[in-house]
Write a protein that binds this DNA or RNA. Structure first.
Lengths: 350, 350
DNA sequence: TTGTAAGCGTTATCAG
DNA sequence: CTGATAACGCTTACAA
């Protein structure tokens, strides 16, 4: 593999001149430049960006750590960061954090040892204080979930308001027994959504029984179990607010007639029958903003930025919310609005 | 930021000794080791892996380049590679190649300049000959699509046989007018699937009219257009073989009664109504094999490996294939088998 | 316009 | 068991 010195020797110049050619330094005689460029081609010279990074200290890599790259929500974030990075000629180092909170630190520190220019993190653990020392040296930006035990930039969504709105939407359809489906309250987003759900019930003058709340519903088996419980209550649930797409997708095969609103849009949510009413998030925007913040911090080390940015979420009304089956209610309640043209408003099989 | 030298000075040893401690070299006196380790903690020493990589030439990074990280198929490949890499304490550099074939080379070369230990590529362009020089220096493994203009390891799927089987499945249900939906024949996988489709029709004694083949059907608008064309033919199509999940997902909202088999399983394919019959691929296995091949090549530089590995795909029969609507046929043809328990075998709305 | 010298943080070599 | 010294390939000063 030809190095810069090889090219220099072949072109009869010093390696500094080759470096100048490489970096488009104007202070190079055109003929010298031509000669060097010819030699670079001839020797198939490719700069070793590792050496450049090492020497200059500037790595031009943005690290991205998300819980799971296969989740379309996080994949969208990653792609958005990638897109922004690419426009600046930077690359992206992606890693999945997985499910185990205890591994988060190891994974992130391994990433940080590679001296990235900055990192974007959607954390899974309950404590990011170990990043404090690192945050002095490079921008660390959180997405989807705010940092815990650390002050850092974050771009999140209004989970509370979204859950409140979603729950209220069900209340407005006449439901007074609304279940909550989630993974675990230790995830801050789920906690906030649960809070929003509870507040909505309270605002509607409904009781928020603990028996309506089903956690750990992220698999088909557990979702089935949760649904069975909800429907078997003395006063059964007639609707469900699912706090994330994973729970919803686990719930879907169960084909039970129950109204549902879910937090987070996902592919095919509008194609299902009935199509799903969702609180739509904008993961790409989250990723875009986070990446730009990294670049802004890099470009303006002394500028002050707003630490926490909370994006709104909005209701996308489709077909999955209807009035409860009680005949009295059914007569009086208006049918749900549907944005999908092909709907017949009849089937209700989620 | 403390460097190795700082630690060495503080511990009263040379940096080489610190290096030995770091690398668990047994030839270090326990007391020395203890002193060094204490200093590392005290100074919050973190090794600069960039320097290590630079010096040693071994980067412990596996690069992964896929068309689109948001596509669950490619995301699964990435996650599998990540998983294998992690077990070896290596990290993963991920990049999306996007849609533009002319950018592939730039993106890959940028990745290669970072001196990864090896790379896994699902290419989008029709020529990877520019990688020949690189493949001398590091293992390059192709997934999903074989390299063109280059001899290199590849793990692909039996696109021909899969398409043949899928098409035959429709033929066996009594269809004699079967449309083909795809993106573009320039993608080798699509070309192979088209070939399999054509061969199946031929084997069944059916004519493979060009008017049955719709390319560029990857968006909802174009899929709608394609479907309209297929249904408007003098002898209309009664079934469709969709050559990839993207086309299928574009087709789904159209809610037209038509039998369908699609190449590649995807989330919720079994939850749709009717649930989709698919030729299932195993992207995770593809990624796993590719990553292991990288490691194997690294560990055994002189060993010879089988260049091309083609994985089988298998039919997952669900509800989306039925006999054509012709009353005569309907009476005689058997109803399709369904693997999904909730099916009623009636609705046919894809 | 071009070159020289030094060094980024680590590991390899070889000597003690 | 430990250390001095030289490298890895490039960029940053500073000269010329």
């Amino acid at each position: 593999m030809a190095t810069m010195r090889d090219v220099a020797a072949a072109a009869g110049v010093s390696s500094k001149t080759v470096s100048r050619v490489l970096n488009s330094d104007p202070h190079v005689h055109p003929s010298t430049r031509a000669r060097v460029e010819a030699m670079m081609r001839e020797l198939d010279y490719v700069p070793n960006s590792l050496a450049t990074t090492f020497r200059s200290g500037r790595s031009s890599v943005i690290g991205v750590a998300v819980p799971d790259i296969v989740d379309p929500f996080f994949a969208s974030i990653v792609r958005a960061v990638e897109h922004v990075a690419l426009a600046r000629d930077m690359s992206t180092l992606v890693t999945s954090l997985g499910e185990d909170p205890t591994r988060e630190r190891l994974i992130l520190e391994s990433m940080l040892r590679g001296q990235p220019s900055g990192i974007v993190v959607a954390p899974i653990s309950g404590d990011q204080s170990f990043l404090a020392a690192w945050s002095l040296r490079l921008p660390i930006v959180f997405v989807d979930r705010p940092p815990l035990g650390l002050s850092a930039d974050s771009f999140t969504q209004d989970n509370f308001a979204g859950a409140f709105t979603a729950t209220m939407h069900l209340v407005e359809h006449g439901h007074d027994r609304i279940g909550f489906l989630g993974d675990t309250v230790t995830v801050p987003t789920t906690a906030a959504r649960l809070h929003g759900y509870r507040s909505a019930l309270q605002a509607a003058g409904l009781s928020a029984d603990d028996e309506l709340i089903a956690m750990g519903a992220g698999t088909r088996a557990s979702a089935a179990c949760a649904l069975q419980t909800l429907r078997g209550l003395a006063r059964p649930a007639t609707a469900v607010f699912s706090s994330n797409a994973r729970c919803t997708m686990a719930l879907l095969p169960l084909a039970d007639p129950m109204s549902i609103v879910t937090f987070g849009d996902f592919p095919l949510a509008d194609v299902l029958r009935p199509s799903l009413t969702v609180m739509a998030q904008d993961p790409a925007e989250l990723g875009r903003l986070a990446a730009h913040r990294i670049l802004d911090r890099l470009d303006h080390p002394n500028r002050r930025f707003r630490r926490s940015t909370v994006l709104p979420v909005h209701l996308v009304e489709r077909e999955s919310c209807v009035v409860p089956e009680d005949p009295a209610d059914r007569a009086s309640g208006p049918p749900p609005t549907a944005t999908r043209s092909q709907t017949d408003g009849a089937s209700l099989l989620v």
